[in-house]
């Protein structure tokens, strides 16, 4: 016996829009993004050109020119793209390691109280230490090559991944497990059918935070006698008092970090299709 759908929803087509009004344009969010960004560039140019902060601030134009120069000229054997890739490699490995260890451990701790009892006290001890504080230990253990740089980034990534995975499980409504039980599911099914999917939003939030921290660690990591990378460019700019290099390095880090963040966001949209229709997320 099939019944008619009794839901009262009627879907009307979106009405035709007239020509754009000024108000619509001004209050559009994308327009405001652009206005805000352009405004910032203009303010920057003004402050730099008027030398309000002395000669230590380069103008946007000078920065772009310097970056353009670096695309072709090689600095310490690499052009700009080479440096971007050098940093990105360290981030990729460090962040992946941090996530690969942090997420499963966080999940495990939240799901098993014995693991929690053993791991949590030690973790809480190390949790507040900033990655930069690990530099000397990193050099002691790994020398001054690539591994010590990756280690710094790993430390920075590991903590937020673990914490968010842990909390992601803890905030799940207990009754959802009851649902699985009354449907005849066992404990493994509770974990795989409820705990993991319900924790995804928190997990991805953790990945985003962790990735962002990884990028901020790049500078600290490349303090360990690096010869390439975006952090190195900034350090070199500081040493040679070339503010264009400093700001240029910062700008490139910002752009590449934004791109990687988009990638994680895209992955989240893929794995959490139910979030696609929620506005504002």
């Amino acid at each position: 016996m099939s019944t008619q759908s009794v839901a009262n929803e009627i879907v009307k087509p979106v009405s035709e829009k007239g020509p754009l009004t000024v108000k619509e344009v001004i209050t559009n969010e994308y327009f405001l993004y652009v206005v805000s960004f352009v405004g910032f560039i203009l303010a920057w140019h003004f402050v730099a050109a008027a030398e309000i902060l002395g000669k230590s601030l380069a103008t946007p134009a000078a920065t772009v020119k310097e970056l353009g120069r670096m695309m072709t000229i090689k600095l310490a054997g690499k052009n700009l793209l080479g440096h971007v890739w050098a940093s990105a490699q360290r981030i990729l490995i460090g962040f992946s390691l941090g996530a690969a260890l942090g997420v499963p451990l966080g999940l495990f701790m939240a799901l098993n109280r014995y693991v929690n009892a053993v791991v949590k006290p030690v973790f809480d001890l190390f949790k507040p230490m900033p990655p930069i504080a690990w530099i000397s230990i990193a050099i002691l253990w790994f020398g001054i090559g690539e591994p010590s740089k990756v280690f710094i980034i790993f430390i920075g990534s590991f903590v937020p991944c673990l914490l968010n995975a842990y909390n992601g499980i803890r905030i799940i409504d207990e009754e959802l497990y009851d649902v699985v039980r009354v449907l005849g599911g066992n404990r493994w099914q509770e974990i795989f059918q409820v705990s993991f999917p319900a924790a995804f939003p928190a997990l991805f939030a953790g990945l985003q935070i962790s990735l962002s921290i990884a990028w901020t660690c790049v500078l600290a990591a490349e303090l360990v006698s690096a010869r390439s990378g975006l952090g190195w460019i900034i350090i070199r700019g500081m040493k040679l008092t070339k503010p264009e290099l400093v700001i240029g390095g910062m700008a490139i880090i910002a752009i590449v970090a934004w791109l990687t963040s988009l990638a994680v966001g895209g992955l989240e949209k893929l794995l959490c299709p139910w979030k696609r229709t929620i506005k504002g997320l």
């Binding site: 409504d173 009754e175 959802l176 009851d178 649902v179 039980r181 009354v182 449907l183 005849g184 059918q193 409820v194 999917p197 319900a198 995804f200 959490c272 139910w274």
Partner: peptide, 19 residues
């Protein structure tokens, strides 16, 4: 204990929001 022979409908729905 709980089992599939007794089904339960919850006051606060308890739907799986990711499904």
């Amino acid at each position: 204990g709980p089992g599939k022979d007794r089904g339960l409908v919850f006051q606060s729905y308890m739907l799986f929001f990711w499904r």
